[in-house]
Design a protein around this nucleic acid. Structure first.
Lengths: 236, 236
DNA sequence: GCTTCTTGATGAACGCGTTCACTGAACGTG
DNA sequence: CACGTTCAGTGAACGCGTTCATCAAGAAGC
């Protein structure tokens, strides 16, 4: 600008709240601005979806300039993740922490339900959140993968427990069974998001049930038999 | 424009090819323009990916204005699908037509390979093509779903044949087994696209193998046993 | 306390997807 | 053949995500 003209202080210099705020450190300032942007982002994204929300409106609600948003977050997608990933992390924590002592099928059903609840609570965002959890680019891809890995470890532990309890054949590959579960879970979620299936939990449970049935302990080939043995899969 | 000034004819009035072209019908013109745009779109999308390609550059290569592209196609995504969906349809046709007479596992492996080859041939586009095949919006969602349904019918037929041949338990739900296959196939493809797994075909095959093992015919509970019976799943 | 450095913030400019007012040639009709 | 209509095509304008030159206030150094 023209150096001879002293510009007046800019309007809304700080993120606005009525009445002046005491001076604060840069870190406090940065954190407060970031928190305000995230709050506004959550509200906008959840209400209008990812594409329906726009950065200028989010910035306006946070009381900052659009450029400020992009100073704190790499881009619009980064903002979405920063706003909502913590909720997904809490969901994973809950799924792990609250897994009941029950048969494996019920446990897997419980875990699936926790995640489905997360998506069901955000219908306008479910497609984008799912898309990103599956196909995000670095660095978020790594974070989603870590989260899946965390749940996967938990699943493998549940599988080992089922083997020890005799409800799964000892030869079952626990990590691979975890991958099967994730396959069913994601397919059901995609079908739900696309409106092709109304109840992703029921579909997941069904697929899991058939898969687990096939992994039930089988008698060793033997001349000794027990008339009480259950062996026939449920017809469907 | 100023009615008193006669504008010279616009440059590149028609989609350009050196030398004048004979007059042609509107339908011919429309189809020729559309084909030229699709050719340019394929080249740009395959080379630079969906986001790396831009509509103005595609239009320039097709010898038309950007607005012309949007006259023929709803938006940039519609252009992508119009450019590449036929290839995916041919891939599905090939997968169905060339399924060998073999055990079910080999047949499913073959089908998966055909589709994986389609994605592998377009590395720059694989993520977007996969994303769209899973999560596209109408009307393309319907088209992708129809295609999946077509393959699903084929899978169910293969499953019934396996049941008839005695390699699957008669109680197996053929459509549900098809859904399991799609779950494994998509999970493996996502893992590949994300760089989390180098060989989607091997992963799919592994998941399918375990699943099918669990659906092998089981002896009815009986006092009669055959020492030759194979029954233990492969340990992993 | 002053000077210099660092960094949080700004908002206009830019790139690109999309819209739309306008153009002109093909088409249909009298 | 003339003329009104239809529609393929145009490209500037617009919306929105992102960039970047600039500003100003906190922090560090002397």
């Amino acid at each position: 600008m023209n150096a001879f003209i002293k510009k007046p202080p800019r309007a809304s210099r700080r993120p606005s709240a009525p009445g002046s705020k005491p001076k604060r450190t840069r870190v406090e300032q940065r954190d407060a601005t970031r928190a305000g942007i995230l709050d506004a982002a959550r509200a906008h994204f959840e209400e209008r979806g990812f594409e329906g929300a726009n950065v200028r409106a989010i910035a306006a609600e946070a009381g900052v300039a659009a450029g400020t948003v992009l100073l704190h977050f790499t881009d619009k997608r980064d903002l979405l993740h920063a706003a909502l990933f913590e909720d997904l992390e809490r969901t994973a924590d809950l799924a792990i922490r609250s897994t009941p002592q029950a048969d494996l099928r019920a446990q897997l059903r419980h875990i699936a339900r926790c995640f489905f609840d997360y998506y069901a609570a955000r219908p306008a965002l479910s497609r984008t959140l799912l898309e990103e959890s599956l196909l995000a680019k670095p660095p978020w891809a790594g974070r989603f993968a870590s989260q899946v890995a965390r749940v996967h470890v938990h699943l493998a532990r549940l599988v080992e427990e089922a083997k020890a309890a005799g409800t799964l054949d000892p030869s079952v590959d626990a990590p691979l069974l975890g991958v099967s579960f994730f396959s069913f879970y994601y397919f059901a979620l995609i079908a739900w998001v696309q409106g092709a299936h109304p109840d992703p939990l029921a579909l997941t449970d069904k697929l899991v049930a058939v898969h687990l049935q096939g992994l039930a302990p089988r008698p060793a080939p033997s001349l000794t038999v027990s008339p009480n043995k259950k062996g026939k899969p449920r017809a469907r």
